[in-house]
Design a protein around this nucleic acid. Structure first.
Lengths: 137, 137
DNA sequence: ATAAATTGTTACAGTAAGTGTAACATATAT
DNA sequence: ATATATGTTACACTTACTGTAACAATTTAT
């Protein structure tokens, strides 16, 4: 599952949880979102570790939002489900040139990509779950 | 090879070509860049189709820049080597929900990702090969 | 206590994608 | 003709991804 698909799938699940306060089990959420329940549990487990959802075992268990939709930002959702930094881009650094020109070009791109990353994260920080819910009503 | 690696590898090759006007063969360039010659030819072939490099067969053949470094933009390099649009991000759209909430969320993300893409392309349009060469001197 | 339901994690087979290299047709200069 | 170069294809090999099942741990109902 690509990073962007993980992100949109997570948001779909969170929107479903935001519909009411009763905990929903993974089967129910997975059916609504259109994904396998086991895969979904993996995603929600990561969101749980970041304090975005809470989960309970047992017959009355399931997942529910741990915070209000206006307190959940897109950026924290992304960081919760993706271990490497948002939209990280890699650069091949295993070449053997002696004069260091390749290394300088690598640095140039690492800087460029990191600039881009900061801009994307800033953009995502401004978007809350609530703003998405309002927008798709 | 990831999109970002292709981009930096291409720029390394183009910087090497910018050193002087004599055509360089793929073996020579590949050695400098640290990549297999056949792979490099694939990359340069794409750059050739976009009019960024020119190539000649035969004993005096090889690759050389088709334009001056100040006329080559990072964005056109990227578009030459990547068929899909720059930094395209995908969204899972095969779910079966009846009310269309998922579709609206998909659209939300497609819009967001396309905004991001435009910003990245704008950033890359402002960077020329010459500006990179000057920066790594 | 026992059974039922649920999360969280692991395992695994099956599939898809990426990688590196070689090979060869085509083209050009000597 | 021969040598050298590009452009493309093919292929074996490896790596990564995918979907699903299975199971331990936990919690509630009976």
């Amino acid at each position: 599952m690509s990073a962007s698909t993980k992100l949109s799938t997570s948001v779909k699940a969170l929107c479903f949880l935001a519909l009411d306060d009763k905990p929903k089990n993974s089967t129910e959420i997975a059916a609504s979102v259109g994904i396998n329940a086991s895969k979904l549990r993996k995603l929600l487990s990561m969101l749980g570790k970041s304090g975005i959802v809470k989960s309970d075992s047992g017959m009355l268990g399931g997942f529910s939002l741990a915070k209000k939709p206006e307190e959940i930002h897109l950026q924290e959702i992304y960081c919760a489900i993706e271990d490497r930094k948002a939209f990280y881009l890699n650069v091949n650094d295993d070449n053997l040139e002696e004069n260091g020109r390749s290394e300088k070009i690598n640095h140039f791109f690492l800087d460029l990509f990191s600039e881009i990353q900061v801009e994307i994260e800033n953009k995502m920080t401004d978007i809350t779950l609530k703003s998405i819910i309002d927008r798709i009503k």
